[in-house]
Design a protein around this nucleic acid. Structure first.
Length: 453
RNA sequence: GGCCCGAUGGCAGAGUGGUUAUGCAGCGGUUUGCAAAACCGUGUACAUCGGUUCAAUUCCGGUUCGGGCCUCCA
């Protein structure tokens, strides 16, 4: 059987993946905070860890994948107020858009997609457990996690308490015992969402990190196999999740393997909402199609930075054109998945090497190897690519204003007559007219096929 | 200030202690009414300075440059 190797942020090295329970592999990935539509930087973990889960399902009989939605957060409160709409309305609308975007990117739905607000009581119970165990304390209506109570704090991000104190840029709230202590629960004013709680007489709401700990525990248990997210979540989010979960559950680990994807960049810089250099996922999808965006995101190794420039998206389009031409309309056959492809992917999700293998298979298919075409189609499915027919891809979205498929077919038929009469002037005129409409013709031994440019 | 990551040919991007992926672009050819596609062939690379080694792009150290985290962030 193929051995999966994964880079583990905990150890900063590649390790053989050994499931805690081979009969049930459990994966948690941090999902969006739904105050705004996602940008292509947010789309990267969605796509990358979708590939991971597809690969795990290929290798193991039973995989549970949880990706949460965070629908309680100060940014949500702020945004709803700015737009003059209710928080529920903002969250529901944003979630609907999120589902559209990830579907267009070819990401399969997770097995569970819990909303944080459905788990407030779990969070409260967990916070109470932490207080009872001496890992957390109440102060001025807040409940804070005490990092001093956890000697291993900082292991994931590789920073010692001394480092954090030395480099502290955090404004230290006066009620914190230690500058690195972080909020588990905080008070809400009457105009903020709040829940009754045992920590104070007034309503409050959870801090940022506790929702993932509570939802992961509920669906996956106190320990599970893989926890994934963007590189910018290593600290503080994942570090704090580990602290909360391990101290509340009395475990040494929260997840055995921690995976973090690199950034999408604009130029040399990280794409981020605070910098403002963002490309919204739905804009990229509208301009380039979801599958092209997906292919562009998978063109680089997931831990390396990737730039989604116009050039990069154009190249991804080029790649898909080539692969789709080679694959034609062959069907997926799970027994036909290419071994070299699978080995590349199993080596810490080396998608560029896997794509290179797809190109080799495309070459073989173009030389007439029908087995290679089936291997190409079936292997690409694990990347979530080439899921339509070659012709369907070439013809693209016929809802674009322009010529209908019937009009195009009629023009091609007229050109065929002209060519049969060796009236190449008329034939070329028809081809030029179609090209002006964005319709490109390719004459082959099987007749003329067309594609939208 | 503390900590971390990276530097590969015109571009994108893997990988390896010695045979120099893959794609795009370029060049030459086959094919085609022409074109497109496809196929065949072909050139160019491992930031820099030292060290280890029979041998380093690959290992180690310094330097330069770029990026990131330490604050919301995928």
């Amino acid at each position: 059987m193929t051995t999966l190797r994964l880079h583990n942020t905990l150890t900063r090295g590649k390790e053989d993946f050994i499931p805690l329970d081979p009969a049930h592999v459990r994966v948690y990935a941090c999902g969006p905070t739904v105050y705004d539509r996602i940008h292509v930087g947010n789309a990267r973990p969605i796509v990358v860890f979708d590939v991971l889960v597809r690969l795990l399902r290929r290798l193991y009989p039973n995989v549970t994948y949880v990706r949460n939605i965070t629908d309680v957060d100060d940014k949500i409160i702020t945004r709803a107020a700015e737009r003059g709409i209710g928080i529920d309305r903002l969250c529901d609308d944003t979630i609907e858009c999120f589902h559209e975007d990830v579907a267009a990117l070819g990401a399969l739905p997770p097995d569970h997609e819990p909303r944080a607000t459905e788990f407030i009581s779990d969070m409260i119970d967990m916070i109470q457990t932490l207080i009872d165990g001496g890992f957390a304390y109440a102060a001025e209506g807040h409940v804070l996690f005490s990092v001093a109570a956890m000697p291993a704090y900082g292991a994931l991000s590789g920073r010692s308490m001394e480092d954090m104190i030395a480099g502290a840029r955090v404004e230290v709230a006066p009620y914190k015992r230690d500058p690195a202590d972080f909020v588990l629960w905080k008070p809400s004013s009457p105009d903020q969402p709040g829940w009754e709680n045992p920590f104070s007489d007034t309503p409050g709401r959870p801090g940022w990190h506790i929702e993932c700990s509570a939802m992961a525990k509920h669906y996956l248990g106190p320990t599970f196999d893989i926890h994934a997210g963007g590189l910018d979540l290593v600290f503080p989010h994942h570090e704090n999740e580990i602290a909360q979960s391990c101290c509340a559950h009395g475990t040494d680990i929260m997840a055995a393997y921690w995976l973090h994807n690199g950034y999408v960049t604009m130029g040399e810089e990280k794409m981020s909402k605070s910098v403002g250099n963002i490309l919204a996922a739905h804009e990229a999808i509208a301009a380039h199609r979801g599958e092209t965006v997906r292919a562009a995101l998978l063109a680089a190794h997931y831990r390396a930075p990737v730039a989604l420039s116009d050039d990069a998206l154009a190249e991804a389009r080029n790649v898909l054109d080539r692969l789709y031409r080679a694959v034609g309309d062959v069907a997926v056959d799970e027994t036909a998945v290419d071994a070299a492809f699978l080995n590349a992917l199993a080596d810490d999700l080396n998608t560029p090497a896997a794509m290179a293998r797809l190109h080799e298979l495309a070459g073989a298919a173009n030389r007439g190897d029908a087995g290679a075409a089936a291997a190409l189609k079936s292997s690409a499915a694990i990347l979530g690519l080439l899921e339509q027919t070659g012709d369907g891809w070439a013809r693209g979205d016929s809802s674009d204003d322009g010529m209908s498929d019937a009009e195009i077919d009629a023009a091609i038929e007229a050109r065929k007559q002209a060519r049969a009469n060796r009236d190449f002037g008329a034939a070329d005129r028809i081809r030029d007219e179609l090209a002006a409409q964005g319709i490109l013709l390719e004459d082959g031994p099987e007749g003329t096929v067309w594609r939208r440019s």
